[in-house]
Amino acid sequence: MTFDLSFLGTALWTAAAKIPATLALAAVPLALGTLLGLPLALARFFRVPVLGKVIQGAVTLIKGIPVVLMLFVFYVVSADAFDPLMQSLGLSLTFRDFPKSLIALAALSIYAAAALCEVFRGALAAVPPGQFDAAAAAGLTRAQVLRRIVLPQALPVSLPMVSNITIALLKAAAMGSVVAVVDVMNAAVIAANANYRYLEAYVAAALIYWGLCFALEKAFGAGEKVLTRRVRRAA
């Protein structure tokens, strides 16, 4: 067995075509996770009775469950529920027609929401408490304090952690292949199924992920610079 460079090229090309799928598997959970995670973090930060505790418990639970298990559970549940649901709706769709990427998106979004909730809570705690009092004394409502004073300071603080989570999501997206989602990794493996050149396929996938992570890190680094400069100028 030797290393086949020309097949590495083929695998790179095939897998690279699925970069948009992998990016979507990271970007959609990031967006949904932010939309969900921010209100959850606010609820915890302001110690909303009962809800705050429930969220804390849920975040601990979710962070303790491996992503791959969450993917399996969602897969089994949707496989079981899909056919009866479609039958009751009078549609002739079966689970074969169900887009499996929805399973990956749902599992990754829940994971992202839990991780981002923690990050935003930490960032909120980093805003000096005196600012809340000062803004309240200036006659701002709680919503105004958040929108104009607290969030513009808290969000730049959270950016390095958001960058870490985004990179973790991009790498976790490779687990989508366990529920038959065709992303970068799965595309490379499928290309190798014909000739068993799996090493070349995984090298191709690794190179693509490495490039994507590198680019993301740089992009977030640049974003951080812009944001901190703006905050400093405003201060």
Binding site: F3, Y198, L199, Y202, A205
Partner: peptide, 22 residues
């Protein structure tokens, strides 16, 4: 370090499994 942090661990596992014997 950059490679190990920038690629999924599943990919690394298969790289070691298929690559190291070679």
């Amino acid at each position: 370090v950059s490679f190990l942090r920038g690629t999924p661990i599943i990919v690394q596992m298969f790289l070691v499994y298929f690559g190291l014997p070679l």
